[in-house]
């Protein structure tokens, strides 16, 4: 039903636009404002635990916006509380990574971090080059699909409302919502892209997203073993609640 699909698409696009940390215009204005050589050097000379803490704070901030996005998706708050929490716990970082492609400049491989754009080398002192480079590769590959804001919105919702998460109490209800979102996404992609495989290409990025989140958990565990105090005392409580082993 076209009417229902249109309503769902409009609701998700509106929810996305209302809950993005930066508007498209703001991002365009910032796109070529990069951290200077001295600023990058400053990030590189930070102790490992300090930069980890800064990143945990940024990620947590982004996640709060994703929670707000979820709440505004029609049907999400009608799911049982267990499933709302489960979908957010398992999907919020994936949505943050999808949203990150908005704040990624593929022309010079830089990402917006603390007000300006910077490259991978900015995160050197985190001590997890594999994770950082995988995240940058992902952002670059998602940017290459040249998604519109509407497609990013619907794809984010599709990533979040997923029946692949274990321990859902009402998987049928989640599935119904997921199907509607995919129909809307498919409809919009057919309208915008000449490439018939565009949707398939987009969906094929989902396993990479979940692999990135697994890698993040592993890196966090390794970091926590070396700096338990930093995690316990200085990391945002929400970040610990979501990712603590």
């Amino acid at each position: 039903n076209c009417g229902i699909m249109h309503r769902i698409a409009q609701n998700i696009i509106k929810s996305h636009l209302e809950t993005c940390q930066y508007t498209t215009e703001e991002l365009q204005q910032l796109a070529w404002q990069t951290h200077s050589y001295e600023e990058v050097k400053m990030y590189q000379s930070k102790p490992r635990d300090v930069l980890w803490q800064q990143c945990a704070i940024q990620i947590t901030h982004a996640i709060q916006y994703v929670v707000e996005f979820a709440k505004r998706i029609s049907g999400f708050m009608e799911l049982c509380q267990n499933d709302q929490i489960l979908l957010l716990k398992s999907g919020c970082l994936e949505v943050v990574l999808v949203r990150m492609c908005r704040a990624f400049n593929p022309l010079n491989n830089t990402v917006l971090f603390e007000g300006k754009y910077g490259g991978m080398q900015m995160f050197k002192s985190l001590g997890c080059d594999d994770l950082v480079s995988a995240v940058f590769d992902f952002a670059k590959s998602l940017c290459s699909l040249q998604l519109t804001e509407e497609e990013i919105a619907l794809f984010s919702a599709a990533v979040l409302i997923s029946t692949d998460r274990p321990w859902l109490m009402e998987p049928r209800k989640v599935q119904k919502l997921q199907e509607k979102i995919y129909f809307a996404l498919q409809h919009i992609m057919q309208k915008n892209h000449m490439d018939e495989d565009a949707l398939a290409k987009l969906i094929s990025r989902i396993p990479t997203l979940s692999a990135l989140c697994t890698l993040h958990t592993e890196e966090l565990q390794a970091f926590q073993q070396l700096h338990p105090e930093t995690v316990n005392v200085l990391f945002p409580p929400l970040y610990k609640e979501l990712f603590n082993p």
Binding site: T19, Q81, Q84
Partner: peptide, 20 residues
């Protein structure tokens, strides 16, 4: 619920775009 009390609270809170 107890394990995810912050997430639970965020879900319960009503927030406006302005507050974000």
């Amino acid at each position: 619920k107890e394990k995810h009390k912050i997430l639970h609270r965020l879900l319960q809170n009503s927030t406006s775009p302005v507050e974000l």
